[in-house]
Amino acid sequence: MIPLANKKSKAGTNVEQVKQQNAASAQGNYGAEFASETDVQSVKERNKKAEANKANNAGNYGQQ
């Protein structure tokens, strides 16, 4: 018999991990599993640059 901790679906999905993620999302922690992988400062910097580019390009629509 396969232990539950190592139970995989036919596609190779870790069933227990999915159950844990589903439980976390039900408690309002959706996306928390990605939080440690996200560089918040980098995202803020890219958002700031994108906003600046939007402002600079707003008056240039249709111009080459």
Rank of each mutant, 00 (worst) to 15 (best):
Q17N: 11
A24Q: 15
Y61F: 09
K19T: 06
Q17R: 12
S25P: 01
Y30F: 04
S36P: 00
A32K: 07
K49H: 07
V43Y: 00
A11R: 13
V40N: 02
A24Y: 12
T38K: 04
A35G: 04
E33C: 01
G28R: 10
A35P: 01
N47W: 01
N22T: 10
A23E: 13
A23F: 07
V18D: 11
A58D: 09
M1D: 08
Q41C: 00
E37R: 13
N6K: 11
N6V: 10
D39N: 12
N6R: 10
K44H: 01
G12L: 10
N57H: 00
E16R: 14
Q64A: 12
V43T: 01
G31I: 10
N53C: 03
A35M: 05
Q63S: 07
S36F: 03
N57E: 13
R46E: 06
Q17V: 14
P3S: 10
A23R: 14
A5P: 07
A55K: 14
N56L: 13
N57W: 02
S25D: 12
T13N: 11
A55L: 10
K10C: 05
L4R: 11
A11Q: 14
L4T: 06
N6D: 15
Q27N: 13
Y30S: 04
Q27C: 06
S42N: 04
L4Y: 09
S9C: 14
L4P: 04
M1F: 12
Q20F: 12
A32V: 08
N60D: 10
S36L: 03
M1V: 14
K44W: 07
D39R: 09
G31P: 10
A5D: 06
E16C: 09
K44N: 08
Q27M: 14
Q63N: 09
K8Q: 14
K8W: 03
K44Y: 06
A35I: 00
S36K: 10
A24K: 15
Q27W: 05
E51Q: 11
E33K: 12
V43P: 02
Q20D: 05
S25T: 10
A24V: 14
F34V: 06
N60H: 11
N47A: 09
V40K: 08
Q20C: 05
E33P: 02
V15Q: 13
R46D: 07
Q27R: 15
Q41K: 11
K49E: 09
K19W: 08
A58R: 08
A55G: 03
V43L: 08
S9M: 12
K10D: 14
G59H: 12
L4I: 08
S42F: 08
Q21Y: 15
A32C: 03
V15H: 10
A35Y: 02
G12F: 10
K54Q: 04
V40I: 10
N53L: 12
K44A: 06
N60Y: 09
S9E: 15
T13C: 10
F34G: 00
S36E: 03
N47V: 07
V40D: 05
N47H: 04
G28L: 05
Q21S: 09
E37S: 06
V40T: 02
A23Q: 13
A26P: 03
Q20R: 15
Q64H: 11
A23Y: 08
T38G: 00
V43K: 09
N53H: 06
N29A: 13
N53I: 07
V43H: 04
Y61R: 11
Q21M: 15
D39P: 01
